[in-house]
Every structure is written in structure tokens, then in C-alpha cells.
């Protein structure tokens, strides 16, 4: 069971820790300057045919003999969207990357829902797969965690460009998207991230890799098989090869980080042997996520 009693206790504690951090100087509310049908009254304007007559101020009409509409200040629909990679490569590692990513997503969602933020989530491989429709309020926490729990299985290849493109078209209003993935997609991720960034999405990418992927412990004549594509390559892995591989992985991470920097995307690297609570607290303290 992914979200057991112990996990939930840790989330509670994490929430308390966060409140303490927030009280010490972080602002936790997000207010929009756009007028709308929110609860707080803002101003009046002249009635135009087609306006919602429920908002006509009849007291003012009796005094002035003209129709005015009450305007309210809308609380911003602050959307947090979590995108979790569930391609086959996420099954790698002990614990697997998908398990770690889901725990992290669970914690982030929990904090968001506790804070009355609007939280949505999707799992993806070549397309968006299962989706948790955006909602808010603490009463959604259970359903949210259940959704993640039910989607632990990994399958298929990754197609980040396609998925991120789709997301940018799906949601007209930009929000915050947190992408949890290993980004091990041979086809790249640049196009998708760019299209989200172009539409003013506030993007966080959390690259999840296992220690074995960063520093493999294999040696000898080996046939390596891609877990997603089943592509096979025979290779003699010696210390030279391992050193080259490590360099290659560093470059891959650096490329992603540079790209993120260029597009004002926040990049977070997450090695699966790090505890998710520590990561979240660190992110918040460093004002990466709030």
C-alpha cells in the first residue's frame, strides 16, 4: 500500500511544519485583480442588457431610478496541476521511481488541498492517461490519494512533447504545473515545455532518477535492454564505459536544467534515496514551491 497510515501521519506533520514556516513570513493567499463573481463586493457599474439580473442592486435602483450591477472581487482560481510520468521506465529502482513520484505528488496535493488550492493531476506516458479533475478543499484529499494509489502501474513509452502540448490546449487559463518525470525521453521534452511556457504556465519540473541510474553498478559483457522500447544493445561495460556514462547522465541533467533556466522553469532534481518530506521542506524554504 502506497499511502499507508504512516504516510498520512507524515503528511499531517509536514502540514504543521509548513504552517510554521508560512507564519514566519510567507504569504499563503493569492488574490486576483480580475473582477468576477467572487464573494467580496468591489464596485458598481451600469447595467448592460445580458448581465445577470441577480446582481442588480435594487436598493440603488429605488434611490436613483437606474439599474446598476454589483461587482465583486473574485478569489483567483489558483490551479495546481500535477503531471506524473507513468511510462515503463518509471518502474525502475527500489523503491521504484513511480512509487517515489506518487508519494511526492501525494504530499504536494495534500498540502495544496489543505490550503484550499485547486488541485488536478494526471498520469501520462504517450498521452494523458488517468486524470483527477481539478477540485479543491480538504474533502478531496481522500479521493486524490485514492486516485494516486490506483495508478501505480507503469506501462508504455514516454512522449513528453505530446503530453505537454495537449495540456496547454486543454486548460485555457494557465496555472501551475508540476511535472514529475525522469525525462528519459529520446524524442525530447523541449517542444512541450516551450508551449506551456509560452502560455504563461508556472512550470516546475521534478526530475526523478534512481541512484543506479546515476551511478550504475554493472560490469562485463552485457546485453542492455531498454525497459520501454525493448531495444537491445550489446556492450562491454568497464570502468571507462561507466565513467563515460556518468558524464553522459550529468550532461543530460545539465541540458534540462539550462533549458529550464532559459524558460523560467523551476528545475528540481530528485534522487529517489532522498526522503520526500525533506525535499518538500527544502523546496519551500528555498521559495521554489509555495
Amino acid at each position: 500500500m502506497l499511502f499507508d497510515e504512516e504516510y498520512l501521519k507524515r503528511l499531517q506533520k509536514l502540514k504543521l511544519d509548513l504552517s510554521r514556516i508560512l507564519k514566519s513570513g510567507f504569504q499563503g493567499q493569492h488574490r486576483s485583480s480580475m473582477a468576477g463573481s467572487g464573494m467580496e463586493f468591489n464596485d458598481f457599474r451600469a447595467y448592460i442588457p445580458g448581465d445577470d439580473y441577480r446582481y442588480i442592486d435594487w436598493n440603488l435602483y429605488s434611490r436613483l431610478g437606474r439599474l446598476f450591477i454589483k461587482l465583486f472581487q473574485e478569489e483567483k482560481e489558483f490551479l495546481f496541476y500535477l503531471l506524473i510520468d507513468q511510462s515503463q521506465s518509471m518502474s525502475f529502482g527500489q523503491p521504484s521511481k513511480i512509487q517515489v513520484a506518487l508519494k511526492l505528488a501525494g504530499a504536494l496535493g495534500y498540502i495544496g488541498l489543505s490550503n484550499y488550492d485547486r488541485i488536478g493531476a494526471s498520469l501520462f506516458n504517450t498521452g494523458l492517461d488517468e486524470t483527477f479533475k481539478p477540485g479543491r478543499g480538504q474533502d478531496k484529499i481522500h479521493a486524490y490519494l485514492q486516485f494516486l494509489e490506483n495508478n501505480m502501474n507503469t506501462a508504455g513509452e514516454t512522449d513528453l512533447n505530446r503530453v505537454l502540448d495537449y495540456l496547454s490546449y486543454q486548460y485555457k487559463k494557465p496555472g501551475t504545473v508540476i511535472i514529475l518525470s525522469d525525462f528519459l525521453d529520446e524524442k525530447g521534452y523541449q517542444k512541450g515545455l516551450r508551449s506551456l511556457a509560452d502560455k504563461d504556465w508556472n512550470i516546475f519540473i521534478i526530475q526523478v532518477l534512481t541512484p543506479e541510474e546515476i551511478d550504475p553498478q554493472i560490469e562485463g559483457d552485457i546485453r542492455i535492454v531498454d525497459i520501454e522500447t525493448e531495444k537491445k544493445t550489446n556492450i562491454n561495460i568497464d570502468q571507462d564505459a561507466l565513467s563515460s556514462y556518468r558524464k553522459k547522465v550529468d550532461n543530460f541533467r545539465n541540458e534540462l536544467q539550462s533549458f529550464a533556466l532559459h524558460y523560467d522553469i523551476k528545475y528540481i532534481f530528485y534522487k529517489t534515496d532522498i526522503d520526500f518530506e525533506d525535499l518538500i521542506l527544502k523546496l519551500i524554504k528555498n521559495k521554489l514551491i509555495i
Binding site: L184, E213, I222, D226, E228, N234, I235
Partner: peptide, 18 residues
């Protein structure tokens, strides 16, 4: 010996090395 198969998450990272 060469056919000892090992699954990895991304072969493309190894291809140049190979």
C-alpha cells in the same frame, strides 16, 4: 557471456559509449 541481459531505463544514454 555477451548475452547476459540487463534491463535499463534508457538505452540511448549508452549508445554513444557502445
Amino acid at each position: 557471456g555477451r548475452q547476459n541481459s540487463v534491463y535499463i531505463s534508457a538505452v540511448f544514454l549508452w549508445e554513444d559509449i557502445q
